[in-house]
Design a protein around this nucleic acid. Sequence first.
RNA 1: GGUUCGUUGACCGAGUGGCUAGGUGCCGGUCUGCAAAACCGUUUACGGCGGUUCGAAUCCGCCACGAACCUCCA
Length: 488
Amino acid sequence: MEHNLYIYNTLRRKKELFVPIHEDKVGMYVCGPTVYSDVHLGNCRTFISFDLIYRYLIYLGYKVRYVRNITDAGHLEGDRDEGDDKFAKKAKLEQVEPMEIVQKYTNGFHEILNIFNTLPPNIEPTATGHISEQIEIVKKILETGFAYEKSGTIYFDVEKYSKDFQYGILTNRKLEDLLEGTRELGGQDEKKGRLDFALWIKAKPETLMQWPSPWGWGFPGWHLECSAMSSKYLGNTFDIHGGGMDLQATHHTNEIAQSQACFHTAPANYWMHTNMLTVNGVRMSKSAGNGFLPKELFTGSHPLLDKGYSPMTVRFFMAQSHYRSTLDFSNEALQASEKGYSRLMEGYDRLKKLSFSDTSSIETAGLRAKCEEAMNDDFNSPIAISHLFDALRAINLIHDGKETISATDLKELKDVFKLFIEDVLGLKSETETSAGNEAYKKAIELLLNMRLEAKRNKDWATSDKIRNELTALGFEIKDTKDGFEWKI
RNA sequence: GGUUCGUUGACCGAGUGGCUAGGUGCCGGUCUGCAAAACCGUUUACGGCGGUUCGAAUCCGCCACGAACCUCCA
């Protein structure tokens, strides 16, 4: 399979030609959510970005195995390797089982991603479902000497590891610089080095989620599950590992170290990091308190919003910026996307009804190549969309009878619009689903045909009455040269 | 403090040495019974100062401002 896809690889900080390990297959692992609270829009951006990447890889003909985990254990608050994890804390607060917390927010996560029309991953493994695999990895790392035990807790020895490997490879940092930026070890710490992190943490009697291990009862460290599950389902070395940029410095850096120490090979060939969603230039995050919940966005109930925006408007808004750039969230920006999105989709509907002529008077044939070229350049969806808008102009001119298109060109244009709008960008019409059944549509068309008749008779009173009353009911009526268009 | 990245027109957002990105908005026009839509045209750009070059938004240096990471975070 010959492709010209270039991917920006964080490992080397440049775009590289994508060559998968197995010719026509791609293994992709993306760090999923920690399910202890509602996902906010920033979280969604990452998963929507990777959905686009996944969809384009499929478009190119690859057989993709997309693994995205659910972190449901072992994620501690703060950097002290002690105490309960986020799930247990929340469970205590809400007086439920930790697994009820996990289930609740996993359900919510799936619901939201479904609303955003993202494709589900092929495998969605959980940390609690892979405790024994994680224990095996800890054992192996202990054997290789890159980890040590201190009273039931196992730490990864970063300084020892950096003698053989480049620990800060993902962020291009030297060990000395990293050490400089880390706080001094406090008196309570048991670990030897400031950068050392826990692979396995000893449980206290009151710890809610704990499992037996060769080192006593405990629970896995945060980074471990990704090493365990990615290797289990994709192999010790696979093609693409992705996640949000905020995971780069700590989570992914430690993941690489663990996997390297355990399997003696780098886990992934291409590391991809998606950038953050910002509000007034500042990163959206739970801790900053500037997180938008998707629900608040759809209904417009968030104080910073003037109105609600539909899920597809938001998806389109995100696709209009590149995944490696920060994207700033504002009313004005969303309104611009809402208008642009509806114009694009109306043009797409118009395209489906277009009739052809003997020849084409306008050039549309190069669209597929242009869109592919854009997407091949590190998934540059904003450029692909700009080409679709250029084609939209042609569609409208043909629709107005000012240009013509041949049967061959029309079929190609329809195919390309379908492929890129629906399959790659993952956009779907939001009007059709609510438009209901055929009889209902026919009834509306009956009314509009009566209006057309009235217009022919210059009976403006009847004509305007039909239009105004339909408009009042929420319909949008547009007159065209020889008829009408409508939507709700 | 260290590391890294960014600063593009009214707003969002691509672009890495010469070629109108695109979207939204504004203004004018065509069309229309009116409106909407559509189409055409127009408008405001590359943070500042130097340097390299025939030519720089794009490369280099300095400065200013902002952000991210270094601590849980998609």
